[in-house]
């Protein structure tokens, strides 16, 4: 918990000294943080691997983007983005959660590919591979944009963290770790997992919608592509499973590292991936696990 507060304090002071460029990078990182935290609710607590976080993110982003292209005001688009992701998530999860083991994950992966193909096929409406240009954007000012993103991440994080530590979070963990045991205690496992999926979908969709209104464009490469989803997953695992806060830290770390290593060119992606791989292989509990361990030792 104190880690989250320290991080938040540092992020709050940034606009005082950091350049607009750094603020821009961190704005994206904040939205990624929400993606990763939403994903951790599913992976860490419901114990379901959602290989398609970008299905939820992309549905939210494109719902908002398409409506905005037709002149709908931005705030309505944001709500519609969250609602769109929720509907998409429910349509996907209701049949998929009946499957067990790796099949749930595979279903979510296929869903991303379907969404991607859908966008490309209906390029006339969706902008296809070129992307969709927004009528509105959140703000022209880097600092304002940063405040929007940071506030959004902090509020989302607080809600998700509270949820995960509440009695419902406890039931969700039990449902994830021991399906039979939870059912034998009278808990409807599918109901709780579905609820977690819905929460994850709303936050992913809203974050996706806000991201495209920040960027001014929605494109497959930024909000739908499987590679984006993989980055979300790496961020969450890197930060530390079942911590929520860790996912946000992982996302910021990943985006910052990618930016710092940009001079390396193509090599930067490789280095970031290698670091992520090492952390996942040798420190299963991620960055938060490392911090936690030191605290236990001292």
């Amino acid at each position: 918990m104190w880690i989250a507060l320290v991080l938040l304090a540092v992020l709050l002071t940034l606009p005082l000294w950091a350049s607009a460029y750094i603020l821009g990078v961190l704005t994206v990182a904040c939205y990624f943080g929400v993606f990763a935290m939403s994903w951790d609710l599913l992976f860490g607590f419901a114990n379901e691997v959602n290989f398609g976080p970008t299905f939820l993110i992309g549905t939210g982003a494109y719902t908002a983007g398409l409506l905005n292209a037709h002149g709908v005001p931005m705030w309505v688009c944001l709500i519609a983005g969250a609602a769109g992701a929720l509907v998409g998530g429910v349509v996907l999860a209701v049949p998929a959660l009946r499957l067990t083991g790796p099949y749930f994950g595979l279903t979510t992966l296929v869903a991303v590919l379907l969404l991607q193909q859908f966008i490309i096929i209906f390029a006339g409406t969706t902008g296809g591979e070129i992307g969709l240009t927004m009528n509105d954007i959140l703000s022209m000012d880097a600092t304002t944009n940063y405040w929007y993103a940071l506030t959004f991440m902090a509020v989302s994080g607080a809600i998700l963290l509270t949820l995960s530590r509440s009695p419902v979070g406890l039931i969700l963990q039990a449902s994830g770790q021991d399906r039979i045991g939870a059912a034998a205690l009278g808990f409807n496992v599918v109901k709780h997992k579905l609820a977690a999926f819905c929460v994850s979908a709303v936050f992913s969709g809203l974050a996706g919608a806000m991201l495209v209104f920040y960027l001014g464009t929605a494109s497959v490469g930024t909000v739908v592509d499987v590679a984006v989803g993989v980055q979300v997953i790496i961020a969450a695992v890197l930060g530390g499973r079942r911590t929520i806060v860790g996912a946000a830290i992982g996302a910021i770390f990943l985006i910052l590292a990618g930016e710092l290593l940009r001079p390396l060119g193509q090599l930067s992606t490789f280095v970031v991936s290698a670091v992520a791989l090492v952390v996942i292989l040798f420190f299963v509990d991620g960055l938060m696990g490392l911090l936690g361990r030191r605290r236990e030792e001292s």
Partner: peptide, 14 residues
Amino acid sequence: MLGLLPDKLLKLAA
């Protein structure tokens, strides 16, 4: 305590 919780989604405090 897990065994004592009701099967409700809006149970934010025990």
